[in-house]
Computed example of a mutant assay.
Amino acid sequence: MTCEPLNKPVAIVPARAGSKRLPGKNYHPLLGKPLIQYTLEAAKESDLFAQILVSTDDPVVADIALKLDCQPLERPSALGQDDSTTDAVIADVITRVNLSDKQLIVLLQPTSPLRQAHHIVQAYHYYQSLPSSDNGVISLVKGSKKYLKAYCLLDQELTPIYHKDASYSCEQALPDVYLPNGALYLFSVAAYRAEGCIPRSGLKPYIMAEHDSIDIDTIEDLREAERLIKARM
């Protein structure tokens, strides 16, 4: 199977069956809809994609994808383990769908239900405006500067996260901090192949608001997502 046309990006939605903290997470009800449905609907509403590919080993997820006119790809069992990486899943999709180096991939994790179609469109146009030397776009949310005061404890040695004076500095003197929110990753197949993974270098930021950036891991996250979605209504 080959994805066409090349001038349209491909969405990859990774949705494995296993979840220890929240069983059935990808189809857990969120205000009457399976969690993954928010992502698939946003992808479809963006009207950007040649294909929306759902890599899954869960028949419930595959059925949801089909009902929403998206393409489920049966994930090999070796890629459905607790230690399976998203990088390996992307490599599997690239091979099986025969994506060319020029193809743009937009990775949409199903645990970001507050990411909407306009975020996808904005991030895509931002990517399109970048010089070819940049490797991709990653979505971020502004975090607390206090984390720059932290240390890593390695072999009983304290190593400052930022620099040796950070923990003694006032927060106003520290730079702004941005954390990946998991909602959007945009990169070409060529950039993926160059590093053998989602690009770690040459990335540009797409900043999202905190109220759009929740990443579902627990039942408490789902409750917060419910509150935020209701606030939009």
Rank of each mutant, 00 (worst) to 15 (best):
A62H: 02
R232M: 13
D83C: 11
Y127A: 14
H211R: 08
K67N: 07
M208I: 07
L130R: 08
P131K: 04
P14A: 10
I105W: 04
L53Q: 08
K67P: 00
I214P: 00
L158N: 02
S84G: 11
Y151G: 01
C152S: 04
S144W: 02
G136V: 09
K149G: 05
K8Q: 15
Y126P: 01
Y162K: 03
T39S: 09
K145L: 10
Q51E: 13
L179W: 05
K164E: 12
I12T: 10
A209I: 07
V10S: 04
Q116P: 03
Q172N: 12
M208E: 00
I90Y: 00
L22S: 06
P199Q: 05
P72F: 10
S55K: 09
D83F: 14
L53Y: 05
L222S: 03
R227I: 10
K67D: 06
Q172G: 10
S133Q: 03
P199G: 10
F187E: 01
G136N: 05
M1A: 12
L154M: 07
A117I: 13
Y151H: 02
D69G: 06
C152A: 08
L148C: 00
M208D: 00
P5R: 09
H118S: 13
I105F: 06
K230L: 12
G182P: 03
I12H: 03
R96M: 09
E157K: 13
L40T: 05
R200S: 12
F187S: 02
A150K: 03
I214V: 15
L35Y: 07
K102T: 11
S132V: 11
Y206L: 09
E195F: 13
Y27Q: 06
A43V: 08
F187R: 01
